[in-house]
Each structure stands twice: as structure tokens, then as C-alpha cells.
């Protein structure tokens, strides 16, 4: 499904701000894997997701999705394989456009955009039905501007957009980090449902260790641009936060440090 080989990325090379974000990283995802990603400050989690999404080119290594090497494919072209939700709720949607227009934009991801009408009547019915599954009352607000929604509502809409057209890979970059705990829990619940229903292969960064253990079938922990822990199945289910921290200090020789990490 997803194959990442020897991926390396250094920011600001040759300057005092030089930062190796990814070091010779290898990762293979199987179809339907739901992988949670945790790691300390600057471990390279977001860098990994951005490398897959094509925000910039890696220094070396390759990213392969379903046998297609997308390493040098521009961001907008590889978008057809990917669904993305960002940490900042503002980033995933167009604020001045209506909810249905945003969904229609996502529906056409990876397709040629011509002079056909931007949104068809039949689509509206489909979107209304999809929005009703969120249980946020958005199905009656199809023509509201997205900018009027709360952060949590926007993330939920972005999730719907990302999951339209069955992307090969769903990338969630701490998509609940900017939300209050109650809202975050709700958005995570929606995430679980969408991923399970559509059997989406998913990479989810989180700063909450408990969430990382509770969700998905596999967990990886990153440190200094490498994957240092990779557990799955029964072994992952039985993990506790303490064991995880212990694994971390043994693998890295350091204490776990993340300004935002929630350990309990």
C-alpha cells in the first residue's frame, strides 16, 4: 500500500538552523492499516506526513503508493491518492465558501475540473445525508459559509471531505490538537467511524498517548527523524502509557519530552 524507503529531509542545510527532520526512514503500511504516530518535540512526525503529501521534496528516498512512485509528483497531483486533515481547523476548508461547495471541491479531488457546474443537485442530497451522520446538525446548514462554523465542526467537515472518493491513504496531522477535550473526543469518535466504515488506510499523528493506544491497529513512535517503536495487534492493545514511556527511554536513551504530550 504505502512504502517509504530511506526517506531523508534536512531543513536549512548548511546554516546554524540546520535540522535533520527525517533520517533514512523506512515504513510500510498494509491495506487497511490504521497507524497512530507519537513522538516528542521535533521527532519528525509532521515532516513525515508532509513528505507523503508532497509539501516539499525529500532530499533522498522514495514514497510509493500502490506501486506508484509519487516522490517527485507535485502536491496537487498526488492529492488524488490522499485525504488530509490539518492541525489548524482553518487550514482544511475554504472559509468564504459554503459547506456544500467545500464538499463538492473535495468530491472532484483528482479529477479534471472543467466548465461543468461546480455542484449538482444530486450531490447536495448526498452531502446532506453524509453531514447528518456527523450528528452536529450541519445537514440543515448546507449553504452556510464554513467560516461560521466552530473549530470542531470545521474539522468534522474536513474529515468528511478527506474521506470522499475513498482515498488510498488518510493523513491526520494532530487534527484534534486545537480542540477542547470534549470536542476532540467527538472528532476522534467520528474519525474512528469514518475510518472503519470505509476501511481507510490511515496515518494519525496524536499528542495523546492514550488515544494513540486506544485507536488503530498499529502504533509507531518517532524520535529524531526515525521510527524507534513499531507495535501492532494484541501487543499494541495491551500497551499502557507507562510501558510506552519505558519503551521510549530504552529505545532512545532519553526521557520523553513533548510540550503538549498528554500522558494520562
Amino acid at each position: 500500500m504505502l512504502e517509504i524507503k530511506n526517506l531523508t529531509k534536512t531543513f536549512n542545510p548548511g546554516t546554524v538552523n540546520e535540522k535533520v527532520a527525517l533520517r533514512d526512514l523506512n515504513l510500510t503500511l498494509r491495506d487497511g492499516d490504521f497507524v497512530t504516530v507519537i513522538g516528542g518535540n521535533g521527532a519528525g512526525k509532521s515532516t513525515l506526513l508532509n513528505a507523503i503529501a508532497g509539501v516539499w521534496k525529500p532530499d533522498c528516498g522514495s514514497v510509493i503508493i500502490d506501486g506508484v512512485d509519487i516522490t517527485s509528483m507535485p502536491e496537487y497531483k498526488r492529492a488524488k491518492f490522499l485525504g488530509r486533515v490539518f492541525q489548524d481547523p482553518m487550514l482544511g476548508t475554504a472559509a468564504d465558501m459554503q459547506i456544500d461547495e467545500n464538499l463538492a471541491l473535495a468530491k472532484r479531488r483528482g479529477k479534471r475540473r472543467g466548465l461543468a457546474w461546480g455542484i449538482r443537485a444530486a450531490e447536495r442530497a448526498e452531502y446532506r445525508q453524509l453531514l447528518s451522520t456527523l450528528d452536529l446538525g450541519l445537514e440543515t446548514r448546507l449553504t452556510s459559509k464554513v467560516g461560521l462554523l466552530s473549530g470542531g465542526q470545521r474539522q468534522a467537515v474536513t474529515l468528511l471531505m478527506a474521506s470522499l472518493n475513498q482515498p488510498k491513504l488518510l493523513l491526520l496531522d494532530e487534527h484534534t490538537a486545537a480542540l477542547d477535550p470534549k470536542t476532540a473526543a467527538k472528532v476522534l469518535e467520528i474519525t474512528d467511524r469514518i475510518v472503519n466504515e470505509s476501511q481507510l488506510t490511515t496515518l494519525m499523528i496524536t499528542h495523546n498517548m492514550k488515544d494513540a493506544i486506544a485507536h488503530g491497529n498499529r502504533l509507531i513512535m518517532m524520535h529524531e527523524g526515525r521510527i524507534i517503536i513499531d507495535v501492532e495487534g494484541e501487543e499494541k492493545k495491551k500497551l499502557t502509557v507507562e510501558q510506552l514511556l519505558d519503551l521510549f527511554s530504552r529505545a532512545s536513551g532519553k526521557e520523553f519530552a513533548n510540550d503538549r504530550a498528554m500522558l494520562s
Partner: peptide, 12 residues
């Protein structure tokens, strides 16, 4: 409106 969103939705 939002360039990063546009690219994520496959818009050049």
C-alpha cells in the same frame, strides 16, 4: 480562499 486546502484537494 485557502491555498493549502486547494492543493490538498488537487487544485493546481
Amino acid at each position: 480562499n485557502n491555498q493549502s486546502m486547494s492543493r490538498a484537494q488537487g487544485i493546481n
